[in-house]
Nucleic acid binder design. Sequence first.
DNA 1: TCCCGGTTGTTACAAACCGTCACATCTTTG
DNA 2: CAAAGATGTGACGGTTTGTAACAACCGGGA
Lengths: 251, 251
Amino acid sequence: MLSQTTMSQPHGAVRRFATVPPCPASLNSLFGGQPVETFEPGTAVFWEGDEARHVFEVVEGVLRVFRILSDGRRVITGFLYPGDLLGVSLKDQYLYTAEAVNRTKLRRYEHGRFQEEINRSPELRPQLFACLCDEMAAAQDQMVLLARKSAEERVASFLLLIARRLGGDERQPVIEIPMTRLDMADYLGLTIETVSRTMTRLTNCGVIAPSSRHALVVRKLGKLALLAGETDADDKDGAGGRAIQQAVWPN
Amino acid sequence: MLSQTTMSQPHGAVRRFATVPPCPASLNSLFGGQPVETFEPGTAVFWEGDEARHVFEVVEGVLRVFRILSDGRRVITGFLYPGDLLGVSLKDQYLYTAEAVNRTKLRRYEHGRFQEEINRSPELRPQLFACLCDEMAAAQDQMVLLARKSAEERVASFLLLIARRLGGDERQPVIEIPMTRLDMADYLGLTIETVSRTMTRLTNCGVIAPSSRHALVVRKLGKLALLAGETDADDKDGAGGRAIQQAVWPN
DNA sequence: TCCCGGTTGTTACAAACCGTCACATCTTTG
DNA sequence: CAAAGATGTGACGGTTTGTAACAACCGGGA
């Protein structure tokens, strides 16, 4: 029913099923009539603390959503892709900043009206509720990653997340990473050097292969899943076991 | 409007305003007629992967909610206190395990009926929605903590969270910590030794003072907030947000 | 087209923080 | 009362960080 490979998303930024075509009264259709706005790379859609006046739908491009500590430390709580919602919350202020990673197109919906529509439609409500649940599940995954995973597991988890979202079922998917190393580092709770070193190691192991500056090929998807320290590994049922059969660590 | 000092809670485990008396058609009233069940310390209410048949309300006691990686690493995604909900989700399986920390009393509600009630009542819906938003906000705080805060900041943040929730507005609140050091460690992404050492350091600094084995006095609440690295410190004005460097995409 | 400056990405090395191991102390449980 | 468990403390080591320096890349301008 719902996308299971949801990327971690911040509060009010919900990802919807990208593969399922929207039904007549889907959340997407709400934004259908709204004009499309374009945001250049590095441009903020809104800042943490701004009055929360609108809900947005990502039409094209990628956004980063983050908070910053007083001394400058930044934490990216999620990346948003086409089909995701941004700014869904009851708070009167945004709790985070949203910035365009690359050129991004959005549709805007007035906050109060969005609430009304949701409240009025018995079809939209469960959709939004489902999105929030998916969002919470993703947030939990991220907490597990940040609390207990090693640097290598974090990078592998991140690449796996993108690969599964973009690459479909290909065995050696080509994935694009529009964000910078700093974005990845701030999302994974690491430094850019550690991210860089880890990516190099994964390349040397043959797990991934660089394609262009912001794209790479996942050569060993199963091994990547192993390195990611997936809980699925102990899901002893047939499907998961077969998919992850790979050499343990040849080096 | 909503509790701002919400403790981080896992998916479907929502905390409601404990100080505000429940209105006639509040979420609490839903569980009013249900029998109270008691769980002894260390007892599981349900396990990750169990079929999600019920939603629970915490009446008394404290629960820990966690996930475990294949090699045994544990991550506690939240603690639940009286008034919190547990198991609110659309998934057909629980995504985490819930265990009683101390003796706990719960009320149970059948999952499908809970959905019905929510869907039917225009008063309950916004309440549940608000709870989910609070829950997401707490999850974000926890991601910030795990991604970028030092051991001392993590412990301070944790103590501050409990102090604010339990201690009201007292200047030197006495707070109870029913969970073990291992629970704290697995919640904060640290080891028990680091937690222990950090608590000792906070004691030596006069910030806290041990009361009993599972209770302590916060002697310097302000200093604790400073050590916690609160974002509030830089919430001076909107200019602060604008000072953030916008890295312009080079491609 | 070529050159050139600024940003991003990579690698090496030392340092810091936290984890690991060990053991003593204290509490709780049977 | 004994045994098991939880907590506190120290020494040591490992993973990650921080600081560099350098290379690669992109964009702008002549």
